[in-house]
Amino acid sequence: MARVNSEFIDEIRQSDSFDASACMHCGQCTAICPMGLDLLPRRLFFYVGAGLEDKVIENRETIFSCLLCKLCEENCPRGVNIADDVRFLRNYINRKVHKLARN
């Protein structure tokens, strides 16, 4: 069962760069992704918006598989900075799961 983590939501909201709330879940990104990443970015952003940290961490292989090629951004009708958002989640996972934070 997925649990809502309010601290996770707060941390994401504090970021100026994470703009996935602009996503309107049209699915263009998923349809065009070279990696065929069904999860990314649409469903992933839904998990983030809902504060489902467990689901985000569970899908970390997918998050690190993104090519950051921005083909999805080229086709995003809402102009979401998808690659930056994915990088933001990588950083979050590196700190919380991989324990790679230096500071």
């Binding site: 070279p34 990696m35 690190f64 598989s65 993104c66 090519l67 950051l68 090629c69 083909l71 080229e74």
Partner: peptide, 20 residues
């Protein structure tokens, strides 16, 4: 609309990179 060479994931997922 170019298509990626796969390089960006080579360091972590070489198999996926080769496929792309």
């Amino acid at each position: 609309l170019t298509f990626c060479c796969g390089g960006p994931v080579e360091s972590l997922f070489p198999g996926k990179a080769r496929e792309i």
